[in-house]
Design a binder for these strands. Structure first.
Lengths: 160, 160
DNA sequence: CAGTATCCTGTCCGATACTG
DNA sequence: CAGTATCGGACAGGATACTG
């Protein structure tokens, strides 16, 4: 992931992808958010080569998605737990699950996202802080105070 | 993306990533959903090498995210427009934007997602079909009717 | 303008072997 | 159990030149 193009600085999507853009990283986050903690747990769950697992785990720690926490001295052993930032990534994963469900349900396993207590189906939507739902097509990405002029023009030219 | 591991069949996230897991593909979808249509538009917006653009564009057409549509005969010219599946991917992108905003706002450009008419800030949340918001930590991924036993156990073991 | 054709590099990833 | 050390292959991605 050495794209380092101009857009990386400008676009929040590109910026995000730079950190978690790798396939395994996302899958590891999925498992971490499912409660997996230890090297061996990830290893078995994912069937990933150990060197890759080490690399991705370290990478996720570096970008602040996971925290490395000793759970045993002698021998020194670490477990990997999601940070607040990593925990917050759950929403992205949920969106991905929901999207995949809608479009790839036929093939193989079907899953659904539900409210734990009632079992009612839930799906990602946009909403205001007051809890009012806003249709997706009413939502636009807007340049914030710190946006550069270039980015501002980019955004304002969006028909959407 | 030749991972073809067992999980790919079982997990909706892995399945989704198999289609759109590449960096450029996601960025292209972002631009397509912003209204860009033509080769040249993508090319300029992304600064991507033309061969890569062709490759990714074809890939996205193949997996059904974009539709190739002739907009001129002689010479025969195509434009690329999001299919329903591609359009639906917008929610995932919005989640990614929102997440990136919350955690990478400080560096470089800051943007925000707002309701177009009122300018009120909006964010992705989980909700039922009736529009009732459900806190993320109350949401679980549940095996649907078609789920295999293995997957079912995986999911049920989630503490979450 | 909308690509195709080549060539090249980096690195993601897999497989396997080894260690305290 | 939790990694480290190597090796090799596939391919994403970059750069550049060329075409109807």
């Amino acid at each position: 992931m050495q794209r380092k193009s101009l857009i990386s600085d400008e676009c929040p999507i590109a910026r995000s992808l730079e950190r978690v853009g790798e396939w395994w990283s996302i899958l590891i986050m999925r498992d971490a958010l499912h409660g997996l903690r230890r090297f061996d747990e990830f290893s078995r769950s994912l069937g990933i080569a150990p060197n890759m697992l080490t690399r991705r785990l370290n990478g996720l720690v570096e970008v602040g998605m996971l925290e490395r926490r000793p759970y045993s001295q002698r021998p020194l052993r670490y477990e990997y737990v999601p940070t607040a930032k990593g925990e917050d990534f759950r929403m992205v994963l949920m969106s991905l699950v929901a999207w995949g469900n809608r479009h790839y349900a036929e093939e193989g396993t079907s899953v659904e996202v539900v409210e734990r207590q009632t079992g009612r189906a839930v799906q990602p939507m946009m909403a205001t802080a007051e809890g009012q739902l806003i249709p997706l097509d009413q939502c636009v990405v807007q340049a914030g105070p710190a946006a550069s002029t270039g980015m501002r023009q980019r955004l304002e030219s969006i028909p959407q």
